[in-house]
Design a protein around this nucleic acid. Sequence first.
DNA 1: GTAGGGTTAG
Length: 488
Amino acid sequence: MSEPNVVSWTALMAGYIDTGQPKMALWLFRKMPECSVMPNTFTFATVVNACSILADLKTGKKVHAQVEIFGFQSNLVVCSSLIDMYGKSNDVNEAHRVFDSMGYRNVVSWTSIITAYAQNAQGHDSLQLFREFNWSTSDRPNHFMLASVINACASLGRLVSGKVTHAMVIRRGHDSNDVVASALVDMYAKCGSIGYSSKVFRKIQHPSVIPYTSMIVGTAKFGLGKLSLELFQEMLDRGISPNDVTFVGVLHACSHSALVDEGLEHLNSMYERYGIMPDAKHYTCIVDMLGRTGQLDRAYSIAKSIQVKPDEGALLWGTLLSTSRLHGRVDIALEASKWLIESNQQVAAAYVTMSNAYALAGRWENVHGIRSEMKHSGVSKEPGCSWIEIKDFTYVFYAGDVSSCARGSEVVILLRELEGRMKERGYVGGSMGLVFVDVEEETKEEIVGLHSERLALGTFGDIFVLIIQHTFTLGPYSVVQVFNFLLK
DNA sequence: GTAGGGTTAG
């Protein structure tokens, strides 16, 4: 073309984005002024989209400034693309500022802001905005919006809200949409209802790699390692190629069900058979798997050989630290915590876990040393917590020190008894952990009534004892398997 | 010629 106009420039940029080359779109955008072609709203929406894909906040902000200079700040499409860009670049506050500035909004702009919150671990705000959308507009949610809302429910573990959203999906006729179905499969698994996951999954006509991966990950987290690997095989038999995330699920299944040989075989097959290079997240699973089964030296040498970015290292070395503590390997725990502290990653958690490793080894002088060091340097750890939604109330549980709680000594007796039963049935591993809380009588009845069989063993006098122990201290056993032990 | 959705390790 002798004189390409703004449409030709924009079309070319969009073409590069469609073919996975967003950087080329940005390059073209910078070239435009040299040819005296002025960008318009279409151009800006496209360029902002390129920044969004790259999660390039710095460039995104510069482009946003230009949007203002050109006076396009009230354009609906440009604003939606900006909200999306800020969301994907993890700047939710800025996304909300753009959303607030809009005089007119449609389903897309609402979806962009709901998604921004859902994808940035702010599920509550995401759901609140969804409610606001429903009563403030006459528009109805479509499959894009519903997929994001289901994602928010999944991240919060909110089964009831998830079911309500599922009902909306059915009512609006979106239940055959494969993206919505994948979101539902994931949501039910994360809300503890793997049976519903499976039901939704089996209704998908031609499941792609993503719903398969959701099922593989879901069953893996439930401690159903064998089933997880069967699903993987089924996927391969149907000619669907796994991706890097699928292998995270497969390796996770192996580590959480103590399938060491299978895990190593899958790791080796990744590149050979499927051309997928194992990276830090896969090696983290392998380190976890070897660590859980007590092969700490092997796990340590693998961790040392992996090149990692700081955030990947936080997980890799954090995993090694956890399993070292579990098996009382103070030497390796020390190396792992050193890596974390020197890289300024998860510093408080590293101190606490290291202190616990020393405590397990009876090295109390070191425990006190770490605690005073923490105090001195002002490092403090936010306690972790779990929560469960029962009817319309959310119960939050903090890991507690048994001895400092009401009737703690009786709880310890109960715990030792449960531990004894587990050992009789072949459980090997460290001491059981426990989370317990005093609740109102009627609340207890409500909870116990709902899960009477499961919680019968967990109720102790007027103290409601909830055994929530992460697979991590249960060695190769999952919490579901432990429940099964106890109920037999 | 333009904007929105699903899977990821401790």
